[in-house]
Design a binder for these strands. Sequence first.
DNA 1: TTTGACCCTTACCTTACGTCATACCCTACA
DNA 2: TGTAGGGTATGACGTAAGGTAAGGGTCAAA
Lengths: 253, 253
Amino acid sequence: MEQYSVKKLAALAGVSVRTLHLYDQIGLLKPSVRTEKNYRLYGQAELLRLQQILFYKELDLPLKEIADILDDPAFDPVKALENHKAALQQKHQRITTLLVTIDKTIDQLKNETMLQPEELYEGFPPETVESWQRLAVEKWGDAVERSRKHLLQKTKQEFKALQHAASLNWQKLFSMRHEDPANEQTQKEIAVHYELIREFWGTAGITDKQAAAYAGLGDLYIADERYTMIEGKPQPEFAQFMQQAMKFFAERL
Amino acid sequence: MEQYSVKKLAALAGVSVRTLHLYDQIGLLKPSVRTEKNYRLYGQAELLRLQQILFYKELDLPLKEIADILDDPAFDPVKALENHKAALQQKHQRITTLLVTIDKTIDQLKNETMLQPEELYEGFPPETVESWQRLAVEKWGDAVERSRKHLLQKTKQEFKALQHAASLNWQKLFSMRHEDPANEQTQKEIAVHYELIREFWGTAGITDKQAAAYAGLGDLYIADERYTMIEGKPQPEFAQFMQQAMKFFAERL
DNA sequence: TTTGACCCTTACCTTACGTCATACCCTACA
DNA sequence: TGTAGGGTATGACGTAAGGTAAGGGTCAAA
């Protein structure tokens, strides 16, 4: 006569003691006897029944249905399983769809939102970027760092749009360099430029440190002539203008 | 400015009012304003956010993670989705396995447990069975009926095993017909026979009615010589022995 | 003013246990 | 014989995502 304590039976069947307590409580699996000290003792028959329970549990049947299957001789286990199968098939189908959706979503997110750090200064020679960054962090500290974080949170699309807007704005400013500064158009482009700077730094109010960093950034820009080309041709005059303008803006931020 | 009441928003998004209450409570989706009477009012932004929530919920993400994704700008949605994808793939695999298991189980159950009524007297000429049943029910009533139900609850395998055991038992009894009835072997086979009868009738104690029905069943058995053949050859002597033996047993049940 | 549709909060119910808390029991070792 | 360590019992709370009331306030139309 094998007798199992809760712990032994639990270990044998790979379930927790709590589980056996629960099954006892809901009448799904009662110990064959209780000792005079109220300890649960299970026999061979209970072990077998537990196996059955676990089998049906594997199939994700709720405990109540398992009890029905095991206890009610009139219960039709085939029908129960067939119902359950249909449910599982639906789940299966749903998960298949979900997996496809998730893949699509991941793709989208990767392309849209993940501005990679290296893309921030894409196009600049790495040494230039590195030295500017070292300098910038030394000189202007976390203002630069905060701006970098702000930009990295943008989607690629937003970032490209920002770059594009800045490029257009600079070209307009350049083309207007001989106009009256009080001119409405000129004023508008200047306002746009302030807006872009603000967007770039990620703050409403620009601090002194950020202004200084902005001026420093100018050196980076004009160090690479690709950023002062118009229609593919280098424009020394544009570079010069940009340098002066950035100084001008930095003083008035 | 569109304003939505709980009910309207719920209808719009296809969720329950309770769900919106819950989302408000856990801070996942707060109404844009509360009226002075404390009614929730949602705006366009909240509708959008709800769409997002539902999208992620579609992917089976727990609400807490959805909140993280939507609220924490530092949260990496791609990583979250990739983790989730892995989990879903496991689920998917598990369900695939389950479906196979269920199919197997259904097959087994169909073949093993479903003893069909017509299989109960398989081999006997239908008229014989029918007339015996009519007679039996008339004479011995529900004792017979109960036995039939008991047998139908057996699996095919059990039933075949029972038939086989009975056949063996009869042949042994026949071969021992000239031995000393007090002989140990003979006694054992007689005991086995009682056991089989008990199993057949599905009760521990055999009633008079069942004993009488048992004797009646004897007529059915010996009416078909296939049941008293040994190694394919009819055995008139065996049939005669069986008839006498059944009477003998019936008297001593 | 009443009626029916809406709204509010509070709170208990669901599944299948996990995780204490508290207390009793047993055995081996010093 | 005392104690330490492990086994056991019950009871209660917590979980996820709401469902389902109960009890009471609000609003608009008839």
